[in-house]
């Protein structure tokens, strides 16, 4: 397995799209955090509401999309070029290959997003001045690490959808729909079942881990993140089953 992990690491570090998607993720994460923090600070005393930690992590959703693209490209790029056949000649154990790819994408995504998340937090708090939160305040450290976990999980979601759909543009549309568009549309659903769907839908559940306090009517931070991970695990399992069954 170490052989396959090394191989996948070489693959991901040797294409330019990795650098670009990660760079975009960091810029969106830190830039958006600073922007929202600056705009909040400029409201002065009137800005009594709001969670300072959440404000500085405002870029998580956009950074998630950039990292999801990284995940999609890690698999989709192989299908687009036909490289997948060369890969499977070298590693005929398809589940081993998928597991190694997932592990490498998750590790790279977590390392970069954790650094970006801390940078956004400290940068944002510096801009917010006297309203700044501290890392030791309740729930703050969990929220900052949680933002990195959310971004990483979304990267794996992208990879799973890439392996399932085997077509880069299709998988990118799917991931944007599932983590960005549809979660917002669920709030339009009527009645109690509508509320339930809204609560459990992908990033509506997953993003709870980036808030210091539990929002009313929503799942708790870890419960919400677990629900999001279940969505991803189911997608990845479906991709794994099809990967084994289909001709490459």
């Amino acid at each position: 397995m170490t052989d396959v992990l090394r191989s996948e690491w070489t693959k991901i570090r040797s294409v330019r799209s990795t650098v670009w998607t990660l760079l975009v993720a960091v810029v969106l994460m830190v830039g958006f955090g600073l922007l929202v923090a600056a705009s909040t600070a400029s409201l002065g005393e009137n800005a009594g509401l709001g969670d300072s930690t959440m404000i500085s992590l405002s870029g998580s959703a956009f950074a998630s999309l950039a990292v999801a693209t990284l995940g999609v490209l890690a698999v989709g790029g192989e299908y687009r070029t036909g490289m997948i056949r060369t890969t499977l000649l070298a590693v005929p154990g398809r589940l081993r290959m998928l597991a190694a790819k997932t592990a490498v994408v998750a590790a790279v995504a977590f390392a970069v997003s954790l650094a970006a998340s801390f940078a956004s937090f400290f940068g944002g708090q510096a801009v917010l001045g006297d309203k700044a939160a501290r890392l030791g305040d309740p729930g703050v450290l969990r929220a900052v690490v949680g933002a990195a976990l959310l971004i990483t999980a979304t990267g794996v979601f992208g990879l799973a959808l890439g392996a399932l759909i085997r077509h880069t543009p299709g998988a990118i549309v799917a991931v944007i729909g599932l983590v960005f568009v549809l979660p917002q549309m669920t709030s339009l659903l009527p009645g109690e079942w509508g509320d339930t769907v809204q609560r459990y839908f992908t990033t509506n559940a997953g993003s709870q881990i980036t808030y210091t306090r539990v929002a009313e009517g929503q799942l708790g931070p870890w419960a919400g993140f677990a629900v999001y991970c279940t969505w991803i695990a189911v997608t990845l399992a479906a991709a794994a089953v099809l990967l084994r069954r289909r001709d490459a």
Partner: peptide, 23 residues
């Protein structure tokens, strides 16, 4: 099988290196 079935963004050396490492 198909000579063009390689990731065009990778250098020749990295392409061969990732295959070598996997085995």
């Amino acid at each position: 099988l198909d000579a063009k079935a390689v990731h065009g963004g990778r250098t020749a050396r990295d392409h061969l290196l990732c295959l070598a490492q996997s085995n």
